[in-house]
Design a protein around this nucleic acid. Structure first.
Lengths: 197, 197
DNA sequence: GTCTATACGGAGATAGAC
DNA sequence: GTCTATCTCCGTATAGAC
């Protein structure tokens, strides 16, 4: 396989994903027609179906792409230098989202779709599992430096706290996407006040 | 207006809403056709359009109905007897959801739709405002009994904590709706560990 | 690989009888 | 108010040329 061709192929797929992401964010996944993605991408229907079997597969690819970068960021941060605190981990989690996605709309749509679509549900399950792992690691590392806060050991402390950190991250994304008057700083300040330091 | 007729009308509207709720929970709002609601309700298309102008209005009515149930539960609890603690408030908020999966799924779908549909967005804004008010009240009441935890007064303490309690509630609903292996008890235990007591 | 053009099915909404 | 029947549009996905 010639690498030029392969690189071009991936570039084209990326072009399609990017156009789809913009379209989904603007109109929502269901309301977005292939014609919309055609317009947004400057390509044709044929070109799109040449790369993705159907609309659902395209959405899954977009979602997968967006989500996969969270893992890397957190893993990187928790393995270099001083372990980040739970609050800092939350900031990493939400900050990355904010950078990648203009807003979290598409993620909220993904969550919604995955309540009724088994294929998307599988994508979400897998990524959540992975985030849990990375997040758990990061928390464990931090609790290891603070034995005073982990009487039953860093493992137990991390396991206990995990759902809260995940939940606060998800809720941040949702509220930012949903509420006209959402105040990120107030939200994070509230989180900082309750998370262990 | 004869009241029998009015009561019958409301009963019929309720029958339609209930059928729509079941359908939406099973297939998702967008994937649910009017034909599905017809089947589920045992009525006809004509009957449904006699009560709701279009599919969107029906969804708004279903969502409004689901949301108002939450509001009532919290308001009732916070006005009777000892002020519930933040953790107890969270349990109240999520308790209704834990009983029935349908409500949770439809709520997640509502959040998703409201990222792209102005009419639904307005519904969400309004109800969130109301929940904020009720929740804020409840938190203020509790902090008033615990001045040791509210150095700047119960108002400030309640304001600070509010986003976290709301967020944890929303995230509970979402995780319950979409994670196969969601553990409500572990989630609430984690919340209890971080919330002030 | 990509384009243009289109087949095909399905969904929302209405008309008109009862 | 409700039913049956149907109209009309729109969206997905494909066929075939280049």
């Amino acid at each position: 396989m010639p690498r030029i061709t392969e690189a071009r192929r991936e570039a084209r797929r990326d072009q399609i994903r990017a156009a789809a992401l913009r379209s989904f964010a603007a109109k929502g996944y269901q309301r977005t027609s292939i014609a919309d993605v055609v317009t947004e991408s400057g390509l044709s229907a044929g070109a799109i179906y040449g790369h993705y079997a159907d609309k659902g597969e395209l959405f899954a690819a977009v979602a997968q792409h967006v989500l996969s970068r969270r893992d890397d960021e957190i893993a990187a941060a928790s393995h270099e230098g001083v372990p980040p605190s739970p609050y800092e981990i939350l900031v990493l989690l939400t900050g990355g989202m904010a950078r990648d996605l203009a807003d979290g709309r598409v993620l909220v749509q993904l969550w919604s779709e995955s309540t009724v679509d088994p294929a998307l549900r599988a994508v979400v399950q897998r990524v959540v599992g992975s985030v849990r792992g990375v997040l758990g690691d990061a928390l464990r590392n931090w609790f290891a430096t603070r034995p005073d806060l982990a009487p039953d050991g860093p493992d137990a402390a991390a396991q206990l706290l995990l759902p809260v950190v995940m939940g606060l991250g998800q809720a941040f994304i949702m509220q930012r996407a949903l509420l006209e008057d959402f105040d990120p700083d107030a939200y994070l300040a509230a989180a900082e006040a309750v998370l262990p330091r």
